[in-house]
């Protein structure tokens, strides 16, 4: 008697499909009452820099008609990372614009990446190209207003986006003075991200809850669509670095990388040091930090509390960045 092929293959296949479907259901993005009321993922909590009418975050909108004194002041465009918000650079803004004011004024322009700082639906449907668009918008806006001394400070995925634009020659016409990279991500510490295209549809969503402060300023849910976008952009940058590219003439770069980092593999600093050279072909500056924090520009709201050494390190990095952009070329 012929075996029934449905019995032989159909039932196991149907069972497998059910398990996969269940896995997808379990890991769908959900936003319960706590999420709605207190988390960035929900509709009620937004990054203030994303609110319509808030002109305070970007320097191009904060100073409506800049005079020659304003235009001579250095501007640092600060770019945050994946799932984060402008909160990641607020401590630097306070330092550069208030604490270090005695040394000279640096204006910090906080850019909110596309798809970020709003709600999880906006994030889920965004692409990495949309994430990066506000960086170029602010750079071109400052350039067209006549600012002469523009630099970048980026964190994590913000640096991957910035490197993609540098490689694409977007800043050749008006090179930035400095590019400061804090924990740039080129190789993820979580290596399963490399399989995002395969396991992503099964896993669906990888929630990463943090402290209450973090949940209010970072997306807690990480939809698989965004993880795929993230891996696409960092893998693209890794390939670019392996081939090699140069900074625009006159631009300098400095990388600060934690030696132990649960998000961005420290080997990324080596890849950047090898692959992104100054215009004259020499190596950029890299400093490996004795820290386990990912993006130490933000210490507030971390659990457990950062150490005194972390605070000292943050202050030193902030002062180095500030003095470098203030220094004459």
């Amino acid at each position: 008697m012929m075996p029934n092929p449905w019995k032989r293959y159909g039932f196991p296949a149907a069972g497998l499909m059910l398990i996969l479907a269940a896995a997808c259901q379990i890991n769908q993005v959900e936003c319960d009452q706590k999420c709605v009321d207190f988390w960035m993922d929900g509709p009620l909590v937004n990054d203030s820099c994303g609110l319509e009418g808030n002109l305070n975050c970007r320097v191009s909108t904060r100073i409506e008609s800049p005079d020659s004194l304003d235009l001579a002041k250095p501007v640092v465009i600060a770019v945050h990372g994946y799932t984060a918000s402008t909160y990641e650079w607020k401590e630097y803004r306070t330092y550069a614009e208030d604490t270090a004011r005695g040394f000279g004024t640096v204006n910090v322009s906080m850019v909110l990446l596309g798809g970020h700082g709003r709600d999880i639906d906006a994030f889920q449907s965004s692409t990495w190209r949309e994430w990066g668009r506000p960086i170029l918008e602010e750079y071109h806006a400052l350039d067209s207003l006549g600012y002469k001394n523009i630099s970048f400070a980026c964190a994590s995925t913000g640096c991957a986006l910035l490197m993609e634009y540098i490689r694409g020659g977007n800043f050749k016409a008006k090179p930035p003075k400095w590019v400061f990279m804090v924990d740039p991500i080129v190789v993820p510490s979580e290596k399963l991200l490399a399989l995002a295209n395969i396991v992503g549809p099964i896993l669906g969503n990888s929630p990463n809850p943090g402290s209450d402060t973090e949940n209010a300023h970072w997306y807690t849910n990480r939809p698989q669509e965004t993880l795929r976008e993230l891996y696409e952009v960092i893998n693209r940058v890794k390939n670019d670095l392996e081939t090699g590219f140069s900074l625009p003439k006159g631009t300098q770069a400095r990388v600060y990388k934690s030696k132990r980092d649960g998000s961005a593999d420290p080997v990324g600093a080596l890849l950047i040091w090898k692959g992104m050279r100054k215009a004259d072909g020499s190596h950029i500056e890299v400093e490996m930090e004795d820290s386990h924090l990912h993006v130490m520009t933000r210490l507030k709201g971390r659990e457990p509390d950062p150490s005194h050494a972390d605070s000292l390190l943050q202050t030193r990095i902030f002062s180095e960045m500030t003095f470098r952009v203030l220094a004459n070329p």
Partner: peptide
């Protein structure tokens, strides 16, 4: 074995 700090991927 794909440690956090390595150039080794699971696939």
């Amino acid at each position: 074995i794909a440690p956090e700090s390595s150039m080794v991927y699971p696939g």
